[in-house]
C-alpha cells in the first residue's frame, strides 16, 4: 500500500514535470539539478587530467552545479571510455575521448565500446605531432632525414610513446606517405624516449607539442617538421609536412563527449557552455600559463574530424596490414 502511494506520487511528479515540456516543446531545461562527473582515462597529473581540471571549474561556474573530474586509468583509456559509453545518458556522466587513441583502440582490438557510443560536446586541446632531434644531430632538416631514409631503409630509429599511440601512428602515416621506412622504437611515454634521444641511442623522436616546448626554448631539441595543417606559432621556422608536399597530418585531440543517447537539449546546453567557457579570457590566460595547447573546435567540426580520422586510420590499418583482433 505504502509502495503504491509512493509510486503514484512519483508518477504524478513525473507527469507534472513532463507535461509543460510536452506542451511548450522548448521549455526551460531542468538540468543540471545535481553534480556532473567527468571521466578521464589517465592518472591524475597527466596531460588529459590537467586539461579536464582546467575546464571543470569554468563549466561549474556556468552550470551552477559541481563538475567533478574522476580518474579511471587503465587499459590505455579503454576503461574510462567504456564507462562513459555505457553510463546513463542523462548528462550527469561525461568523459574525455581522444583522436586518434580512442579510435585506434577499436581498430587494434575487440574494444568494449564503439565510436558511435559517444556524442561530442566539443574539442578542448589539440596538439600536432612533430619530429625532434638534438641540436647536435647530423640531420638539420627533414629533407636530410627523408633522403637518408630513402637510401637506407629501416636504418633510422624513431622513438615514440607506445605502440599505436598518436605519435606511433603519426610516424607510420608519415612513412607511408613519404615512402620511407623507419625503425619504430617503443617507449613507455615520451620522457624515456627523449632521454634515449639525448643520449644518442636513437635518431629521432615523434612526440606532441606540449612535451617539448620548453626543451626547444632551452635549445635542447630542434623541431625538424610538424604534422599540423599550418605552421605552429611556437616554432615558426619548422615547416609542416604538408607544405613540403606530403599530405600527412596527425595530432592528438582531447575531446569532451557524452553517452550517445543523451537528450538533445542537454547536449546542446553542454555544447554552448563549453563554447562560452573556452572563449573566456580568464580560461585562455590560465591555459597559457600552464602551457596547455588549447584549441576549441565546435561539436560539428570535431565530429567531422573524428569521422575523417577514423577513415584515414582504417586505410592505414589496411595499407600497412596492422594487427587486428
Amino acid at each position: 500500500m505504502k509502495h503504491g502511494k509512493m509510486f503514484a506520487s512519483i508518477l504524478l511528479v513525473l507527469l507534472v514535470g513532463v507535461a509543460p515540456l510536452l506542451a511548450q516543446g522548448q521549455a526551460e531545461l531542468e538540468y543540471p539539478t545535481k553534480g556532473i562527473e567527468v571521466l578521464v582515462g589517465y592518472s591524475a597529473g597527466g596531460a588529459t587530467d590537467i586539461a579536464a581540471r582546467l575546464v571543470a571549474p569554468f563549466m561549474e561556474k556556468e552550470l551552477g552545479k559541481p563538475v567533478t573530474v574522476i580518474n579511471k586509468p587503465g587499459a590505455g583509456g579503454e576503461i574510462a571510455h567504456s564507462a562513459t559509453a555505457i553510463a546513463k545518458p542523462d548528462g550527469y556522466t561525461l568523459g574525455y575521448i581522444h583522436a586518434p587513441a580512442t579510435i585506434s583502440i577499436t581498430l587494434n582490438r575487440k574494444a568494449s565500446y564503439a565510436l558511435q557510443d559517444f556524442v561530442i560536446i566539443g574539442n578542448v586541446v589539440y596538439h600536432e605531432n612533430l619530429i625532434v632531434v638534438p641540436p647536435t644531430s647530423r640531420f638539420k632538416t627533414i629533407q636530410d632525414v627523408l633522403t637518408y631514409a630513402k637510401e637506407n631503409p629501416g636504418k633510422l630509429t624513431i622513438g615514440n610513446s607506445g605502440a599505436y599511440a598518436d605519435d606511433h601512428l603519426a610516424s607510420l602515416a608519415l612513412q607511408n606517405t613519404a615512402g620511407v621506412k623507419f625503425e619504430d622504437t617503443m617507449f613507455q611515454g615520451t620522457a624515456p624516449s627523449l632521454v634515449a634521444l639525448l643520449g644518442g641511442h636513437i635518431d629521432l623522436v615523434m612526440c606532441n607539442v606540449a612535451d617539448i616546448v620548453d626543451k626547444v626554448k632551452q635549445k635542447q631539441l630542434v623541431v625538424l617538421a610538424t604534422l599540423g595543417s599550418e605552421r605552429n606559432a611556437l616554432f615558426p621556422d619548422s615547416p609542416t609536412m604538408k607544405e613540403l608536399g606530403y599530405n600527412v597530418m596527425m595530432g592528438n585531440y582531447t575531446t569532451l563527449a557524452a553517452p550517445a543517447n543523451t537528450p538533445a537539449p542537454i547536449v546542446k546546453l553542454l555544447q554552448d557552455t563549453l563554447q562560452k567557457v573556452t572563449a573566456s579570457e580568464e580560461y585562455v590566460a590560465k591555459a597559457t600559463e600552464m602551457g596547455l595547447p588549447i584549441k576549441y573546435f565546435t561539436a560539428q567540426e570535431t565530429t567531422e574530424i573524428y569521422k575523417q580520422q577514423e577513415q584515414r586510420l582504417k586505410e592505414l590499418w589496411i595499407t600497412l596490414g596492422l594487427p587486428t583482433q
Binding site: 586509468p73 587503465g74 587499459a75 590505455g76 579503454e78 576503461i79 567504456s82 587494434n108 582490438r109 568494449s112 607506445g162 605502440a163 599505436y164 617503443m186 613507455q188 594487427p323 583482433q325
Partner: peptide
C-alpha cells in the same frame, strides 16, 4: 599489453588486466 604489438597477454579478455 605487449609493448610492441599492444596485444593484451594473459588478460583473458578482462580489461582490468590489460595494463
Amino acid at each position: 599489453f605487449d609493448s610492441v604489438t599492444a596485444y593484451p597477454r594473459y588478460a583473458f579478455g578482462n580489461i582490468h588486466l590489460y595494463e
